[in-house]
Design a protein around this nucleic acid. Structure first.
Length: 489
RNA sequence: GGCCCGUUCGUCUAGCGGUUAGGACACCGCCCUCUCAAGGCGGAGAUCACGGGUUCGAAUCCCGUACGGGCUACCA
């Protein structure tokens, strides 16, 4: 690629950044980075009904969280701004003027009601449901007079009659072709003077010198219309690349019905940006068919459109969770503590002061949970017992463990052993407790499970000896005393 | 209705004329083990949507059919 690559991600702030949009953003970002190009963020806020400032802010936050840094866009600015569509109206008016003088656009005075009837008629006959080009034949003087008289009108694109089929190479789909006569004399500018979507995007892409348009599959059918606009404007047509949809587990297009699909909701559930990025990159693109875990740097160095898959992909939460677990395990204790603290605080386990005063303690906790957690929010139920004053013993644990023969003597022996220890660290605890089973003649499994249940209330917990150390002697002994009452001899 | 796109294990994918159709998640079993994980080893799972061609040979190329999706707005 000899030209300087300029790509853009153009979300509309009618909602939060969702998973599908994020993947489009990632591919654009990766493509730009791979080619040393420019990645642009443009906010398509021309739908006043549904666009909100809050959504714009949420999109910017999500982009930042994912680490999708853009070279041009809101906040950072750039030479091709502004980066909000609502601030680019002048360029649409300008482009319309160019089309008018080139004779590539004409005013249309048909009313919505007229059009509705024409559409129906066309559909019944040949299947063509486009505009029948009635107003094309109005001569220039008449049109000018009617406009001067204040008659409401739109401006349509005059699709060239001599034009052959519209064929373009799609970077992911290969050659795509549309018959010209399937393209309407589409409306460029509405009665109220605002630009329609297809007109606005292509003018924006032209004026921002976009070289590659990487976007969702749903725009594939819009592409011939846009190509015609580029041609009418006499501007070079960019390379198009259409990405297939992301579907929910039911094979239907991913939507709110599938639960939380916004990027920020994944963040809140304790997914890491690296994992989300990796997973989304993998959902429709492959490095080599073998590698599933790779860094954003690897993605940026190796991304290519010809390895993007053409078929729609079903979003698999389980694989994302697995991948997130991979990244959690790779984290240092320091990082993991930073990451899990917000969840512990939200659960009321830690006061703001304790975040720093108990830092060392948290650093000892981190390695115990790192290989047991997939989502960060899982730490809350996993370690809750460490922060509680008393423990509620699960009913099933009561029967399965404390009800077992030997549980009582085992607890007695452990209590006594632990009480007499000179130090209360995991290694010392382990060495001492390892001798208990043989001494009291109870299976190791029964002994350790009894202590685990006493201390955590459940049959599942992080490694026992480390847990006792973190709990401290006083709490450990107190909990054993309570559990002892429920244990059989 | 018309036009366009898609179809390889349950899921994500590799494959780009000759492979025992490979990998990953999930699943099952074994090992490790104080529980759960993590890890190691192994297993099951794909008549490559279907039907025709082309070819010595097709998951790979061509044509149909079916199914799914998109566009067909003075929405984006």
């Amino acid at each position: 690629m000899s030209e300087h690559v300029r790509v853009r991600f153009a979300p509309s702030p009618t909602g939060h950044l969702h998973i599908g949009g994020a993947r489009t953003a990632i591919y654009n970002w990766a493509f730009a980075r791979r080619h040393g190009g420019t990645f642009i963020l443009r906010i398509e806020d021309t739908d006043p009904e549904r666009s909100t400032e809050e959504n714009t802010q949420a999109i910017l936050r999500a982009m930042e969280w994912l680490g999708l840094d853009y070279n041009e866009g809101p906040v950072v600015g750039g030479e091709y701004g502004p980066y909000f569509q609502t601030q680019r109206f002048a360029s649409y008016a300008d482009a319309l003027e160019r089309l008018k003088t080139a004779g590539a656009s004409y005013p249309c005075f048909c009313t919505s009601a007229d059009l509705e009837i024409k559409r129906e008629a066309g559909r019944i006959q040949g299947g063509f449901a486009g505009y029948d080009r009635t107003c094309r034949s109005i001569d220039a003087d008449t049109a000018a007079a009617r406009i001067a008289a204040g008659e409401p009108h739109v401006w349509r694109l005059k699709v060239p009659e001599q034009r052959g089929d519209i064929v373009f190479p799609d970077a992911v789909r290969g050659e795509v072709s549309f018959p010209v006569d399937a393209v309407d004399d589409l409306v460029l500018v509405r009665t109220d003077g605002t630009a329609t979507y297809n007109f606005a995007v292509t003018v924006d892409d032209v004026t921002m010198a976009i070289t590659h348009v990487i976007r969702g599959d749903d725009h594939l059918s819009n592409t011939p219309k846009q190509i015609l606009i580029y041609e009418a404007l006499g501007e070079p047509v960019p390379v198009f690349a259409h990405l297939s949809m992301i579907l929910g587990a039911d094979g239907k297009r991913l939507s709110k019905r599938h639960g939380a699909t916004s990027v920020e909701s994944y963040r809140d559930q304790g997914f890491l940006p690296e994992a989300v990025m990796n997973y989304l990159a993998l959902l429709g693109w492959s490095l080599d068919g073998e590698t599933t875990v790779f860094s954003r740097e690897t993605l940026a160095e190796n991304f290519s459109l010809d390895r993007v898959s053409r078929n729609p992909a079903i979003f698999d939460d389980e694989k994302l969770e697995w991948l997130n677990g991979v990244y959690v395990r790779e984290m240092s204790a320091q990082t993991l503590v930073d990451q899990m603290v917000p969840y512990l605080q939200a659960a009321g386990f830690l006061s703001p002061e304790e975040v720093s005063t108990r830092r060392d303690w948290l650093l000892r906790l981190a390695p115990l949970i790192s290989e047991r957690v997939k989502r960060l929010d899982e730490v809350v139920p996993m370690v809750g017992f460490l922060f509680a004053d008393t423990v509620v013993i699960e009913e099933s644990a009561l029967a399965k463990v404390l009800g077992k023969e030997g549980a009582g003597v085992a607890l007695d022996a452990c209590r006594e052993t632990l009480a007499g220890l000179s130090a209360f660290d995991a290694a010392t605890i382990e060495a001492a407790l390892r001798e208990v089973p043989e001494r009291v003649g109870v299976k190791p499994k029964v002994v350790f499970q009894a202590v685990r249940v006493a201390v955590s209330g459940t049959t599942v917990s992080p490694p026992l000896f480390e847990v006792l150390e973190l709990l401290g002697r006083e709490q450990t002994l107190a909990r054993i005393d309570v559990a002892r009452k429920y244990a059989v001899e």
